[in-house]
């Protein structure tokens, strides 16, 4: 029983990490029908930025470092859109080209991080280290609880934002009908830039949270999570924010159980197989809507 609960808790906290990054993918896809591969790289870059700031300027002040990192991540996201995506988008060719451009950005960011940060593992600050609660023999560390709570809060805020905030509603409008927004005179380009910024900020939260969870940071952090988060997005139905979250949790919990009861090698095997199977049964993902193509 203890083992079951422990594994479940591990799965849920990992799921929160996936969910936050997955929302970034889903948000941009909902507006542009573009898979933004650079999201995973932003995940990594934000963690590196946090580390760099914390070890130099803002030593000891987690909250301040965190806020600065979020601002940096948002700016990074906006710049990526401005430089690498917008010019291609505006021309109007198939967005396969924007996809490829985002892959290029991903490679560049990852290589810069690797070159400046190096391959060592360095200790990363965490919150309430060593504190935990024991529920029926399952140990839940404080940081895990914090991650889960923060994720839920963010989801709640995102929901409110897209319903009641002007900019948020703008984003929602964009995802429903991009052309109509142009016609309505909305500042579409700026809003799209904002959506990238929002996605990046979420990825930053996810990245910093993950490193806090592991109490360390190293370059390989981005790769594994990036692919999985992307997979989770599609699993839940790409383009639907709710789906990204659900997909993230489902995938992480499945992985946790497979790793705990079977083996770690089987874990990846199972998660990717599950994705394929679900997509075969429901090609648009769990909550996905069928894309209508105008003839």
């Amino acid at each position: 029983m203890a083992k079951f609960l422990q594994i479940l808790v591990n799965g849920i906290s990992l799921g929160s990490i996936y969910a936050l990054t997955a929302i970034g993918y889903s948000l941009i896809y909902s507006i542009l029908q573009l898979i933004n591969m650079s999201n995973a790289a932003v995940f990594l870059t934000s963690a590196v930025i946090f580390y760099a700031l914390y070890s130099s300027i803002t030593a000891g002040q987690v909250a301040l470092t965190f806020i600065l990192t979020l601002i940096a991540a948002g700016a990074l996201g906006y710049i990526i859109e401005l430089v690498a995506i917008r010019p291609i988008r505006e021309k109007g060719d198939s967005n396969t080209y924007a996809l490829i451009s985002s892959i290029g950005v991903k490679t560049i960011l990852e290589q810069i991080c690797q070159g400046t940060f190096g391959s060592e593992i360095k200790p990363f600050p965490t919150l309430l280290a060593g504190k935990y609660i024991d529920l029926f023999g399952a140990r839940t560390s404080a940081i895990q609880i914090i991650i889960i709570v923060v994720t839920l809060v963010i989801l709640f805020v995102m929901n409110w934002y897209t319903q009641h905030n002007r900019v948020g509603r703008g984003l929602r409008a964009l995802s429903q009908n991009l052309n109509a927004c142009h016609l309505m005179g909305m500042p579409v380009n700026t809003l799209i830039g904002v959506s990238f910024a929002v996605g990046s900020i979420l990825a930053a939260v996810s990245g910093v949270a993950y490193c806090m969870y592991l109490s360390s940071i190293s370059i390989s952090v981005g790769a594994a999570i990036g692919n999985k988060a992307f997979a989770a997005t599609v699993l839940g139905g790409i383009g639907v924010l709710k789906g990204a979250v659900v997909g993230g949790y489902i995938l992480a919990v499945i992985e946790s159980f497979v790793a705990g009861y079977w083996s770690m090698s089987a874990m990846n095997f199972v998660s990717f197989s599950v994705i394929i199977i679900v997509l075969i049964i429901k090609p648009t993902g769990i909550f996905g809507k069928k894309e209508q193509h105008k003839v």
């Binding site: 690498a84 291609i88 080209y97 924007a98 892959i103 290029g104 490679t107 560049i108 290589q111």
Partner: peptide
């Protein structure tokens, strides 16, 4: 990476 972005 640069090649991809620039060519695109």
């Amino acid at each position: 990476g640069l090649v991809l972005v620039i060519v695109m």
